[in-house]
Design a protein around this nucleic acid. Structure first.
Lengths: 145, 145
DNA sequence: GTTGTTGCAAACAGTTTGCACTTAA
DNA sequence: TTAAGTGCAAACTGTTTGCAACAAC
C-alpha cells in the first residue's frame, strides 16, 4: 500500500478517528489525485464509480474533519470550494491550472518587498495573505495544441 | 449630488440601462460605503433601513449588471461573495480589513520577481493572479484598544 | 407605447442538521 | 460494548428563474 496513505491512516488513528471505509475511500482519492483540486461532488462520483455507496453528508463531515486535521486543505476559488491533499512545508502559495485544476506550490513566498512596503508606508497591519496564480500547466498546454 | 454618483448615473445611461429607484439606492450605497465590501444581504438591509422596498432578485440582477459594467467588482473572500465600488487605475490588489471589510488598494503589483521566476523556472504559463492581504486597518486597530 | 425592469413565488445548488441505526475498535 | 460514524430525509442559505405587472424612457 502507498506509503503516504499508510502514514495518513496513522495520523488519523493518533487523532482518535476511526478508519471507516468512507474515510479510506476519500483519502485514497486525495492521495491518488496528486494535488488536484476536488469538490464534494467529484469525490462522490469517484466513490460511486468504484461501485461503493456514500452519502453527501458523510463526505462533508469528513472533509471538515480532514481539513481540521490538516490532512487536506480547503481552497475557495472561482466561487467554488475545493479540497486537495495538504503538502507539508511552509510557503504555500499555489499556481492553479484553470483547465485540470492541478495545483503546484510556489517554492517561496513572494512577499518580501511588499511586506516592507506595507509596514513602512501604510497604516495597515497585515496578519495574513493569500496568493493564487492562475494559468495553464505544462500538460494542458501540450494538449491544447 | 455627489459628483462620483452623477458620473456613474451617466455611465449607466450611456450603456442603455434605465435609472430605476432600485439601481439608484444600490449605487448610492456603494458610493457612500467607501470601498467597504458589501454582500447582497447587507445591501438589502441598508435599503430597507431607508424604508424602501426591494427584492433580492432585483439586487442580484443589478449586482450582475453593475459588475459587468465594471462599476462595481465582485470579490470572493472567506467563502463569501461581496461587492465594492470599483476603483479606476490599473494595479489592483487589495488589503482587506477583516473587521470592517474596508479595502485599500495596493499602489503597485508585487509580482515582478515572482513572474520572472515562474517564466524562467517552471513549466507553468501564468495568465492571471490574485493577491489579497488580510489584516486590520488603522481605525479598527484604534478601536480595539 | 415599448422595452427594460421589477416583484413574487418557486426552483435550485451546495451544504448542514437531527436522529435512529450501524460499525470500528 | 460503546463511542464514533453513517445514511436518510428534511432544513437551510444564497442565488437564480419564469412570468405577469409595471415604469423609465
Amino acid at each position: 500500500m502507498n506509503e503516504q496513505l499508510k502514514q495518513i491512516y496513522e495520523t488519523m488513528k493518533e487523532k482518535g478517528f476511526k478508519l471507516t471505509p468512507a474515510r479510506k475511500y476519500m483519502l485514497e482519492i486525495f492521495v491518488n489525485s496528486d494535488y488536484r483540486l476536488l469538490d464534494a461532488s467529484q469525490i462522490y462520483d469517484l466513490i460511486r464509480k468504484k461501485n461503493k455507496k456514500i452519502n453527501f453528508s458523510t463526505i462533508y463531515r469528513n472533509l471538515e474533519i480532514l481539513t481540521d486535521s490538516e490532512i487536506i486543505e480547503k481552497i475557495t476559488f472561482n466561487e467554488e470550494t475545493k479540497y486537495k491533499l495538504r503538502e507539508q512545508g511552509s510557503p504555500h502559495h499555489l499556481m492553479i491550472c484553470t483547465l485540470c485544476h492541478q495545483t503546484i506550490p510556489l517554492p517561496f513566498c513572494p512577499f518580501g518587498e511588499l511586506e516592507t512596503y506595507i509596514k513602512n508606508d501604510t497604516d495597515f497591519l497585515p496578519t495574513n495573505h493569500h496568493v493564487e496564480i492562475y494559468g495553464y500547466c505544462k500538460k494542458c498546454r501540450q494538449q491544447q495544441n
